[in-house]
C-alpha cells in the first residue's frame, strides 16, 4: 500500500510505532537514522493531511431499487 492510500489512522499508527522504537534505544545508529527519517516523513505527511482536509459530508438515501446513494446535505 502506498503512503497516499494509507488512512490517517494507519499513518499515525506507523508513526507511533516508529517513535516508540526510537525511544526504546535498542536500535543501532543506522536503523535509528532510518527510523528517524521515516518518522519525520510521516509527520510531514500527517500534518499535510490535517492542513488540507476539507470535510466531506453526505446524506445516504435509498433509491427505489433499494440501492444506497450519497447526496450532499442541504
Amino acid at each position: 500500500m502506498s503512503e497516499k492510500e494509507k488512512t490517517f489512522e494507519v499513518l499515525m499508527g506507523e508513526l507511533e510505532t516508529l517513535v516508540a522504537r526510537l525511544e526504546s534505544e535498542d536500535l543501532n545508529l543506522d536503523d535509528a537514522i532510518q527510523h528517524n527519517e521515516a518518522a519525520l516523513k510521516l509527520i510531514k505527511l500527517c500534518r499535510k493531511r490535517l492542513d488540507t482536509a476539507r470535510q466531506k459530508i453526505d446524506k445516504l438515501v435509498q433509491n427505489s431499487a433499494g440501492e444506497w446513494q450519497k447526496q450532499p446535505l442541504d
Partner: peptide, 23 residues
C-alpha cells in the same frame, strides 16, 4: 486536529532531539 497538529510538531522536535543526541 489542532491538538494533533501540535502533537505532531512536538513529535518532530522530540525526534530531532533524540536523533541528534544519538549522533
Amino acid at each position: 486536529s489542532h491538538e494533533l497538529m501540535s502533537r505532531l510538531i512536538n513529535m518532530g522536535h522530540t525526534l530531532h532531539k533524540t536523533i541528534s543526541h544519538r549522533v
